[in-house]
Design a protein around this nucleic acid. Structure first.
Lengths: 346, 346
DNA sequence: CTGAAAGCGCTTACAG
DNA sequence: CTGAAAGCGCTTACAG
């Protein structure tokens, strides 16, 4: 264990309070004394004991607000599980979390939820953000007031967030393409189904997918890109139509569909109904997807650690609020795992 | 934050010391008082503040010994990195680690290293174990003396270890087979290269690989299994010979080789030299393997989180020694990730 | 069998 | 600008 404040104080012939002042930049220390203390500090390689610090800091209770659109959404429910586990974990630090669960992607509702939490006196915010100017402005405003925001699952580039925990969507698209290259022969026909071409994350995945396909030199033909609004019914219709169209023109049969967002269940049903053997690669790991993989209907799925996307933001905020430790990086990427049949063993 | 010992004591009309006694089963409390305290405890859902406990417990310095065969071995060096990071992390808890680095898999040297650490007064041991009766007995003996052992990377089934952190070798073999099934057509010829058929982990991987191939119904032919003692030169020779043999008999060309252990570099060189296009699936992620994957010489590699295999054992021992918290499970599996081209991005 | 006191390393008022 | 004191929740001797 490293040297203690008390010992430093003795070495400098001063008091612990004064050492604490320079350590935490609280000012009110004479310039000579400060430089002397700093010298001894570095000389003895002082490192604060975080356990002791946490114990005293935990007296100042703090409140973290969480806004998450997890109602009726499996993916975000998993993010929420991470949030809650972290919330349990940080109780000892005097941190409480207060969760506002939303359904869907309404900008108004998100804004309302944030303002509501602000009224309740939150000291920090964890948010699955809607991409909008009002949300960007709100984050900046909160920062101004000393309330840091950590984004979960998706970033807003220009925003004043303290940090973001999300996967690298471009990479996840590329990984899907890598798999496609492994399972398809040159010249195969590939289609893309995504949620919305307005969604930045979805676009990045498509870009990654296309780039990696391109670079592979496998000469795949990208037959079509369709949107399903993350909705299974729309997904069914869109995929059904897509397959039918392709079947009309001879030699344009689709060999593989990359599902870059939700709506997998509807899409897979459309494939089954078509009677054709079309391979599929998906994102994330809902229960259905796991079954499809076991049944061979889905070749592989690319995951993004939703639990971590909830857990880490709470820990980052706690470290910042309680221990005054800033995140090492502002942008934290969760892993993109490739999961296939036996990945779900045990 | 939950109720505190002090408050409990007040509610029971007793002192903090006495509450502490029942909390930690130190005895010396009258039966009536104890039951009263217990009642209030559960009634108020008391949970100890681990931060405070850690602070006082950190006064009793403790020493964790580490025996690891990481000399000249990339994989175990990564395990060691995890050990060292954890060691840094637990300094605040008054824990110091002392590392004995070994080269190779000598039972004698491992026994000597353990005994040496014991003499130095370790309170716990983290070990990459050799599978031997002497080691098993030693672990039991240490336990008897109150020194817990956590195994790293590999388990010894009958041993009295507190816990083990290792990957599921059977699963990793199955995953390799899953990939093989994706990239090969029915009836393909597959060979296996492993380190040693004496090594339990290697055997489990082969079993997993075979079982999953079998269950796939892809009718692969398993042409041969060869050992390379984890040595690149032996690996080169073995693979070279294997390919030549197969080439002799018409129609027995090898389509894919599963490298279930080390010696990948030699093996891949033999494949290149043969001029044949033989696919390869490997274990772990040395620098060379990453390059092979980029070059298309290796289709995919199955990893097992060596860093975690070092990090977690130190944390488990610390929690046990300092906070008296037992591992939730004795057998902790690290993830088996499937890594391909773009898995190494960013 | 029980309680009062001291202390872990740090921070927070408070007094000067 | 500086120091002495109190306190965080817990455990550890020590005295009775």
């Amino acid at each position: 264990m490293s040297i203690t404040i008390k010992e430093i104080a003795e070495l400098c012939g001063t008091s612990r309070g004064t050492v604490d002042r320079v350590l935490n930049g609280r000012g009110n220390v004479s310039i000579e004394l400060e430089s002397k203390i700093r010298e001894v500090l570095t000389q003895h390689n002082y490192e604060p004991n975080t356990t002791a610090r946490a114990l005293v800091k935990s007296q100042k209770k703090c409140l973290i607000g969480v806004v998450i659109n997890s109602v009726g959404n499996h993916f975000y429910s998993e993010v929420l599980r991470g949030v809650e586990a972290a919330g349990k974990h940080v109780e000892n630090y005097g941190v409480r979390i207060i969760i506002s669960e939303l359904k869907g992607y309404s900008e108004d509702e998100q804004m309302n939820a944030i303002c509501e939490l602000e009224k309740q006196g939150i000291d920090g915010l964890a948010l699955t953000p809607i991409y909008s100017d009002r949300v960007i402005d709100k984050i900046a405003e909160l920062k101004e007031k000393g309330i840091p925001t950590v984004l979960m699952n998706a970033d807003i580039d220009g925003s004043e967030r303290l940090a973001v925990v999300a996967s690298n969507n471009y990479r996840s698209g590329r990984l899907a393409a890598n798999i496609a290259c492994l399972v398809l022969s040159a010249g195969s026909h590939v289609a893309i189904v995504t949620g919305s071409l307005q969604n930045l994350g979805h676009i990045k995945r498509i870009n990654g997918f296309r780039d990696a396909i391109e670079e592979s030199g496998k000469q795949f033909e990208l037959t079509s890109i369709v949107e399903n609004d993350d909705d299974d019914d729309k997904s069914y219709q869109a995929v059904k139509q897509m397959i039918e169209e392709a079947s009309k023109s001879e030699g344009h049969r689709i060999d593989l569909i990359y599902f870059g967002a939700a709506g997998v269940v509807g899409g897979i049903r459309a494939i089954s109904d078509s009677g054709q053997t079309i391979k599929a690669i998906t994102m994330d790991e809902g229960e259905e997807v796991k079954e499809y993989i076991q049944d061979g209907l889905v070749v592989a799925t690319i995951t993004q650690q939703p639990y971590e996307q909830g857990y880490q933001p709470i820990m980052l905020l706690t470290n910042y609020l309680v221990l005054n430790i800033k995140p090492e990086k502002a942008k934290i990427h969760t892993m993109n795992e490739i999961k296939i049949k036996d990945s779900f063993l045990e």
